[in-house]
């Protein structure tokens, strides 16, 4: 059976796994966005907290993914929960770092003018700082997503959802005639998912960036 026939025969399970993959990545990046923005704002505001926040989120990214997924099994068991927690941790660094950079690149004179006109600190943050930093933050989210789409394949190791299951099935049946098709199918699916996410972010960037700074 050649690869093309394999794809046609397995279109349904493959697309289901691709959908699972998208969902688990989406949830993880969504949580990481909220958490990462909060940490980024904290790091931006407090020069004392900045080094530890950046150091911890950078360290998280260096933990081998296999180990990180396995680490949460005693706490959260198998399945989606440990997968999501691990993916959130991986997604943090680009978002935190870009939030800090984005907020730091907002023109100080703009903020001084806003303050001098009697704009309170909350409003200043929501109306001025965040919209101006947003394109940079969003770039961080995009990088995070790319990182996490790949790593999410390994979540299959802890019975997580997604296209990783396809790849691991292939690896387990190494030597059988289907092994290569399984691995190729999973990998190709991940590439497609990654491209879909990227297209989504390009559209999102256009939609959510204020016209004056596009």
């Amino acid at each position: 059976m050649d690869f093309y026939e394999y794809l046609v025969d397995n279109a349904e399970p493959l697309s289901q796994e691709a959908l699972d993959h998208i969902v688990v990545v989406g949830i993880s990046v969504g949580i990481a966005l909220v958490l990462g923005c909060a940490l980024g704002v904290l790091a931006h505001r407090s020069p004392r907290l900045r080094p530890p926040i950046l150091a911890v989120s950078a360290t998280l990214l260096t933990i081998p993914s296999l180990a990180l997924f396995a680490m949460f099994i005693p706490l959260l068991g198998l399945g989606t929960p440990p997968a999501v927690v691990a993916l959130v941790l991986y997604a943090l660094l680009p978002i935190v770092r870009n939030t800090v950079v984005g907020l730091g690149s907002v023109d100080q004179s703009v903020l001084r003018a806003a303050r001098g006109m009697g704009m309170g600190s909350w409003r200043r943050f929501l109306r001025i700082e965040l919209p101006l930093a947003w394109p940079v933050v969003l770039t961080g989210v995009r990088v995070s997503t790319q990182v996490v789409v790949g790593i999410a394949a390994i979540a299959a190791l802890v019975n997580g959802p997604g296209l990783g299951n396809e790849i691991f099935r292939g690896l387990r049946s190494l030597g059988s005639p289907f092994a290569l098709n399984l691995v190729l199918g999973g990998t190709l699916g991940i590439v497609v998912v990654a491209l879909l996410f990227d297209a989504f972010f390009i559209a999102l960037r256009r939609l959510t960036t204020a016209r004056g700074i596009r």
Binding site: D107, V110, G116, I213
Partner: peptide
């Protein structure tokens, strides 16, 4: 501050407004 107009050298217009 809302009762006092304020102009600075860099002007500080909001670029996204």
């Amino acid at each position: 501050r809302r009762r006092i107009g304020y102009v600075i050298q860099q002007i500080g217009l909001f670029p996204h407004f």
